[in-house]
Every structure is written in structure tokens, then in C-alpha cells.
Amino acid sequence: MTEYKLVVVGAGGVGKSALTIQLIQNHFVDEYDPTIEDSYRKQVVIDGETCLLDILDTAGQEEYSAMRDQYMRTGEGFLCVFAINNTKSFEDIHHYREQIKRVKDSEDVPMVLVGNKCDLPSRTVDTKQAQDLARSYGIPFIETSAKTRQGVDDAFYTLVREIRKHKEKMSKDGKKKKKKSKTKCVIM
């Protein structure tokens, strides 16, 4: 069974824990209790493949930012979460993405942009803004509501699919490099 290491990042209060708990335990946590770091595991079937999701729910508070490099190193894919009623959390996505790329030393890291709290009427981040940002990053965008469960499975499952595509691409690139290195030079 394939294991996928997913990391949920975003500013404090955007609903990272609520999304994760909704996926794992099928219930909505409405009281806000700032996370330092929590880890969850769940076995699911995605596109006919049974897999184990190892999900790291991270601290959004700035005082825990020193811990970010460590979990970013171990993560295979990242859910970059903002709240649709919090423009600052949307603007912060850029910083999370840049930090992930720096730590992973790669421009090509599996990510999904997630606009959470889409059940709320007080939207300050337009869907088109988020779609445009995701398009500019070359990553999928999904709106979710941890409260109603809308888009929750889709967000995590899409990230797994992005990781699969990335692994497939990397193995193809690896095979191309191996083929090239088999060419021999004969000096007579």
C-alpha cells in the first residue's frame, strides 16, 4: 500500500485542523484551538488504489514558523489553505509557496490551493482571484467548507493525484537520464 505524506499549511484560523478532522473523523470542530502540530493517518481508496494518507496539520501562528522547514522537508505534497473571508490569509499563500519551493529546492512541488469556509456569506476573496492565482502557479484550486464537508475529500484526493503525477514524471525523467548515460565512448 502506497503511503502519501501530505502537509496542510496556511495562516492561523483558516480551518486547516477543521478540514483535516472532517476528512479523518467526519465531524466539524467549530471551536478554535490553535494547533502546534498534529499528525493523522487514514486509509482510503483513490482511483481504485488503496493508500495510506499521513497528514500533518501544522501551526499557522507566526511564533511556530521555525518548525516549518522541518515538516516541509518531509512532506510530499501540500494543501495551501486560505479562508475566503480573510484576504490576508490569501496573500500569505505566496509566502508559504515560496518557502516550500526553497526548502524542497524545487520549482515543481505537488500543491493544491484550497479556499476554505465557502459556506460563509462574508467572502472577501473572489473565486476568480483564487483561480487566477492557482493557474499562475500551475496547481489545482478547490473551494471547501469544513463545516458542510463540501470539497473536503476532493481537496485531499486531488493532492494525492498531483503527487502521483509528480512521481510518474520524475521516474520518466530518471529513465531518460539513465538511457543517456548508457551511451559509451570508444577510443581507438
Rank of each mutant, 00 (worst) to 15 (best):
Thr2Phe: 05
Glu3Ser: 04
Tyr4Pro: 13
Lys5His: 01
Leu6Glu: 09
Leu6Trp: 15
Val7Leu: 12
Val8Thr: 01
Val8Lys: 02
Val9Asp: 02
Val9Tyr: 06
Gly12Tyr: 02
Gly12Lys: 04
Gly13Glu: 02
Lys16Phe: 01
Ser17Arg: 00
Ser17Asn: 00
Ala18Val: 03
Ala18Trp: 00
Ile21Asp: 03
Gln22Asn: 09
Gln22Glu: 08
Asn26Asp: 09
His27Phe: 13
Phe28Arg: 01
Phe28Asn: 00
Val29Asp: 01
Asp30Ser: 07
Glu31Ala: 11
Tyr32His: 03
Tyr32Ser: 04
Asp33Leu: 01
Asp33His: 01
Pro34Glu: 12
Pro34Asp: 04
Ile36Thr: 00
Ile36Ala: 02
Ile36Lys: 00
Glu37Pro: 01
Glu37Asp: 07
Asp38Ala: 00
Arg41Asp: 00
Val44Leu: 12
Val44Arg: 05
Val44Lys: 03
Val44Ile: 10
Val44Phe: 04
Asp47Glu: 06
Gly48Leu: 03
Glu49Thr: 09
Glu49Phe: 03
Thr50Pro: 12
Cys51Tyr: 12
Leu52Gln: 06
Leu52His: 03
Leu53Asn: 14
Asp54Asn: 04
Asp54Gln: 02
Asp54Lys: 00
Ile55Gln: 10
Ile55Met: 13
Asp57Ile: 00
Thr58Tyr: 04
Gly60Met: 15
Gln61Ile: 07
Gln61Arg: 00
Gln61His: 04
Glu62Ser: 06
Ser65Thr: 11
Ala66Tyr: 08
Ala66Arg: 09
Ala66Cys: 13
Met67Pro: 02
Met67Asp: 03
Met67Ser: 03
Gln70Met: 14
Gln70Thr: 12
Gln70Lys: 04
Arg73Val: 09
Thr74Asp: 12
Gly75Tyr: 10
Gly75Ala: 15
Gly75Pro: 02
Glu76Lys: 12
Gly77Arg: 03
Phe78Asn: 01
Phe78Asp: 00
Leu79Glu: 03
Phe82Lys: 00
Phe82Ile: 10
Phe82Cys: 13
Ala83Cys: 10
Ala83Thr: 13
Ala83His: 14
Ala83Trp: 01
Asn86Phe: 01
Lys88Asn: 12
Phe90Pro: 02
Glu91Ile: 06
Asp92Glu: 13
Ile93Phe: 13
His94Glu: 10
Arg97Trp: 14
Glu98Leu: 01
Gln99Tyr: 15
Ile100Trp: 07
Lys101Ile: 09
Lys101Asp: 10
Arg102Cys: 13
Arg102Asp: 12
Val103Gly: 07
Asp108Gln: 07
Val109Asn: 03
Pro110Trp: 00
Met111Arg: 01
Val112Phe: 05
Leu113Glu: 02
Val114Gln: 00
Val114Thr: 01
Gly115His: 04
Asn116Ala: 13
Lys117His: 15
Lys117Asp: 14
Cys118Glu: 07
Cys118Asn: 09
Cys118Ala: 10
Asp119Asn: 15
Pro121Ala: 13
Pro121Ile: 12
Arg123Phe: 08
Thr124Asn: 11
Thr124Gln: 12
Asp126Phe: 07
Thr127Glu: 06
Lys128Tyr: 05
Gln129Lys: 13
Ala130Gln: 09
Gln131Met: 11
Asp132Glu: 07
Leu133Trp: 07
Arg135Asp: 14
Arg135Ile: 12
Arg135Ala: 06
Ser136Thr: 06
Ser136Leu: 12
Tyr137Glu: 04
Phe141Asn: 10
Ile142Ala: 15
Ile142Leu: 04
Ser145Phe: 12
Ala146Ile: 10
Arg149Cys: 09
Arg149Glu: 12
Gly151Cys: 07
Gly151Tyr: 08
Val152Ser: 12
Val152Arg: 13
Val152Ala: 09
Asp153His: 08
Ala155His: 11
Phe156Leu: 15
Thr158Phe: 12
Thr158Cys: 09
Thr158Asn: 05
Leu159Lys: 07
Val160Gln: 07
Glu162Gly: 08
Glu162Thr: 10
Ile163Arg: 01
Lys165Leu: 12
His166Ser: 08
Lys167Cys: 08
Glu168Ala: 09
Glu168Val: 11
Lys169Gly: 11
Lys169Met: 08
Met170Ile: 08
Asp173Phe: 13
Lys175Leu: 11
Lys176Phe: 06
Lys177Thr: 09
Lys177Gln: 12
Lys182Val: 03
Lys182Tyr: 14
Lys182Asn: 08
Thr183Gln: 11
Cys185Leu: 06
Ile187Lys: 12
Ile187Glu: 14
Met188Ser: 09
Met188His: 11
Met188Ala: 05
